[in-house]
Design a protein around this nucleic acid. Sequence first.
RNA 1: GCCCUGUUAGCUCAGUAGGAUAGAGCGGCGGUUUCCUAAACCGUAGGUCAGUGGUUCGAAUCCACUACAGGGCACCA
Length: 586
Amino acid sequence: MRAHIEELVTQALGYLKRDGVIEDDAGIEIQVEPTKDRAHGDYACNVAMMLAKRAGMNPRALAEKILKRLPASKRVRDVEIAGPGFLNFFASGHYLKVVVREILAQGEAYGRAPANTKEPLLIEFVSANPTGPLHVGHGRGAAYGASLAAILKAAGHAVDREYYVNDDGRQMDILAVSVWLRYLELSGERVRFPDNGYRGDYVYDIAREVRSRHGDDLRHTGHEVAQTLPSDGEQGGDAESHIDALIAKARELLGETDYQAVFQIALEAMLNDIREDLDEFGVEFERWYSERSLHESGALDQSLATLKEKGWLETRNGAVWFKASELGDDKDRVVVRDNGRSTYFASDVAYLLDKLARCSGTALYIFGADHHGYVPRLKAAAQGLGENPDRVDFQLVQFAVLYRDGQKVQMSTRSGEFVTLRDLREEVGNDAARYFYIMRSHEQHLDFDLDLAKSKANENPVFYIQYAHARIRSIFNKLEEAGQRHNQAIGEAAISRLDAEPEQILLRSLGRYPEVIENAARRRSPHILAHYLHDLAGQFHSWYNHSQFLVDDDDLRNARLNLAAATGQVIANGLGLIGVSAPESM
RNA sequence: GCCCUGUUAGCUCAGUAGGAUAGAGCGGCGGUUUCCUAAACCGUAGGUCAGUGGUUCGAAUCCACUACAGGGCACCA
């Protein structure tokens, strides 16, 4: 509808330009937006005010001229000039009738733009290090990314979802060592656990797995392990060098093959755990992309070679630097350390290059807010690689803080005292978790109220929306119980009977759904959809209390049932995109 | 110190590329049920859009500065 009105206005402006009333409308985009107040019609356009100055006439006079040139449309009942020069468009009954018919005919497809008609996107999200279970912070990124990907797809983008697996870094070595130490402990050795090791119970679980596969084969005495180790942080030394020495010691005592065996068991255990967790949360990926594979395939060397060839690399103090500061970053970044090992950033560059090669559109990164420092350096990397930095987009998801009984739930990753995503899902359920995570703008800090999420009353927005859907299904169940059938054709013919205020409001909202999807996609903001659904549910509840559905009048009953069915369909479609179920009954 | 986010009703937040009288929900107060789910609805009170200046027909929205809050500034991942 919005696009249709834009078309009408464009045509009118074309005529005016031909007539010489307007000389030039370059740089002016025609803006048509849904009105806030129904007295202003259904859609409003402010183009007359934007062009008034250039046309040298007052906005209302110009609006008058545009109005006269507007082509007639079956979907528009009336156009008025109002306020300082708005053109207010009133949708026709014909249009509203078409909306309900379209929804019922298209079903699940309603609101979806034709597939693959927009820019392809490669969206990467979560990408948590596989060194422990996902926590509630990862949950927000997961819910946001999954919902956004679904919305983008519905808006017509081809979307590929990826999880980047950091299976090559030092953190993974620390996990491997933590597992091995727990393994020794379970084998009866007395070993000291390092300050910076991973302390969670899951480490014991993995250690047990190692024991069941390798028995005592990987056993060394606690004395052997402790020998020649520098002191740990709590012993007055440096925690970092302590754990690095411990990693070196593990490699030495176990030998590379056995060390890799432990490493691999730990990695697989964590990946399986994360995969299962996300799968249960309704979060899926096309690809789990291994950082290691970038090393093994030579992609990393290749991307560094590209940077070098373009003159962006420089050797200083034995390390290789990427001259990011010349490309808008704060400072230069090391890609190869003086010890010969490449940095995490080097892998990022290789991954970025690979993404841009595989996707003809934009690489969309979803980062936690704490990673915002990556934005300029990755933009610089894109440019350094000779790619267009506009093909890299970043969305930063702010933190989520849990509240229980009005109190902030304290968490500390270091001590292993944090609420896992799994805990949260078990406590409030997947539906509430998915909705709550995305109901606020991702750019906004999120206060996640656990008590509210569990509430079964209208104060809980998820519940409120789901209840609207269940109520609609319930009407149809009652109809069936009464031995009656819903006749869509009769309802369609009698659609003009839906002239009550709440019905008109609902019709108008249903017609806006495709625009909401488009808007949410363009602004990368699933919360727009969440708010829309909440509004729609409210409009339905209001109507429900306002009038009867199962009335004797065949025409009126079927017309109302059409509208109820259409509302249920849109709620189900919208909830589907944000990963929330649309229950038949509650 | 530099950089990124944010600041809107008592609380949690919307507010689309700058538009008409700044909106919801919760909480407060007052109502609604012989009737399809009252797990709902209706009404009502509540605002210096953090502050100051600027841009223009028009600013919560754009720009500058200030204040406050969270985060980031590694040859860590």
